[in-house]
Write a protein that binds this DNA or RNA. Structure first.
Lengths: 134, 134
DNA sequence: TTGCGTGCAAAGGTTTTGCATGGCA
DNA sequence: TGCCATGCAAAACCTTTGCACGCAA
């Protein structure tokens, strides 16, 4: 049986993600952010992969770069049942409850023969704040 | 003023994407596929970046791997105006015209204050063929 | 005391870059 | 002939791995 230890680096990484849950970071951003706590690079890589697998954080692609970014997955949200909008400008993730959207998903499943994975799908666009800046 | 040359490697890469427009490939897949034509690795990298920028191909993330894949962007489809479903199993890209979906996008823009970028957003899920396999 | 988690350094893999050459127009 | 595109090799980068040690339980 597998035990799990509570350690400094693990706490540092989780805290960092939680305290900045509105934003996303590349692995190296995180390495940088927690380096003062003494956590090494490979540990951060290992932790991020663990957290990703256990669903504590989520992974996103960025439109411009080749790198992935990671963001805290707030478990207080019921992410199984709703949909996600992500602003390509500021990175903000919006958890959207929307009956109409769910109805359309059902429609797509019936009429377009496609089962939408709401967990895997992120709809990109621009949030109010960013679009009003233009 | 910038001229553009018609060259062997360029033709090989574009042809490969066009002839396999239903599927997606990593850069190294393409390197492999066109290697017989004599095209080198760095050239393929450069070509893929060019084609991506000019919109001839599109980039997708893969759910499991750290690598991106690329797929021919069929210009005969009016991708500005419709939506995209992509099967996470087989990679098939479905160009969906759907009035209901468009209505919901308008709804989201008005009520949820979020402007959906239909070009950037890909909805992941499972196509009929793949979901009936289970 | 046990064995998981860590740090360091090295290895592995992918992508980019520099530079001389080749070939399209 | 001019200059863009290419191939090769090296460099730059990012990520994973091996191993010995430290530390939580």
């Amino acid at each position: 049986m597998k035990r799990e230890y509570k350690t400094g680096p693990k706490k540092a990484v989780i805290d960092f993600f939680r305290e900045n849950s509105e934003r996303h970071f590349s692995v190296l951003d995180v390495v940088d952010a927690v380096s003062q706590s003494g956590a090494g690079k490979s540990t951060v890589y290992r932790l991020i992969n663990n957290l990703l697998e256990s669903g504590v954080i989520r992974r996103f692609e960025t439109p411009d770069s080749q790198k992935f970014v990671y963001q805290y997955a707030d478990k207080s949200h019921e992410c199984e049942t709703h949909y996600h909008l992500k602003c390509v400008k500021c990175g903000r993730l919006i958890h959207m409850e929307c009956v109409h959207f769910r109805e359309v998903c059902n429609h797509i499943e019936k009429e377009h023969s496609f089962i939408i994975g709401s967990k895997q799908s992120v709809i990109f666009g621009e949030c109010v704040a960013c679009s009003s800046e233009n």
